[in-house]
Amino acid sequence: MRPGRLVLGVVLFIVGVLMLAPLVWLIVQSLMPEGDAFSLPPSWIPKPFSLANFKGIDGLIPFWQMALNSVIVAVVSTVGSMAVSVLAAYGFSRLPFRGRDRLFALMLAALMVPGQMTVIPVFILMRNLHMIDTLQALWLPALINVFAIFFFRQYFNTIPRELDEAARIDGASHGWILFRMILPLSGPALAAMSILSFEGSWNNYFGPLIFLSSHNKMTLPIGLVTLQAGQGGSSTVVFAAITAVVVPVLVVFLIFQRAFVASIASAGIRG
């Protein structure tokens, strides 16, 4: 090994360790008794060890209810938006109708509209529909995912049209072609968009901040923030709650790392 490579390896290893340090510190403090955590010099091993902080979370916020809310919103938004987007992308890719390309261009142009611009009118709409402080207020607007429609349409366009034209001649319906032929060939695109949609919903803070007010309707990110704002819980319990939110996400990420990174690289969406 050349010395240059050794230096490079050492430097990058240190960068990696520094990136992880705040997370390790978080988890270690959450596993220590209140009186021992946050000592100086910082402890990097949870000794003495205690799970008491995790038992304290439910006394401050309805953690499991919030986790369930997060799951409901993320699953409904993801499944729903994928269904809507796949149908639309098939229409825009394969079915001729008047004004099709102009309609598609209009939707694409809307990608430039930041969500903060539409949020006030959407808030007023939700208020008129009596949906403030409901989970619908979060997943209903998430069903329209213009980027996913664009992404799927691009992907469908790479699938040879001879395939579906042959199936049409054999009498297949458009539904059959989409669900039995095109979707089975679109696994990577579906995975990429589903992962990004789920992640976006799971980590969403702006939407819940605006639409939700009662504790048992909240999702995890907004629930965490209320925990630090009022409640008067100890810092170790706050750390336990953050850990309980962060660690499952990191584990899921480690399992699906390859698919996750591929989806980020292919779509180029920043969280």
Binding site: V15, G16, W202, V238, V261
Partner: peptide
């Protein structure tokens, strides 16, 4: 190791990152 540790923070929600 380096790739994973660089990417870890990105998958965590801003709420958790900001509090931490």
């Amino acid at each position: 190791f380096v790739r994973t540790s660089l990417f870890f923070p990105f998958v965590i929600s801003w709420a958790a990152v900001a509090l931490l």
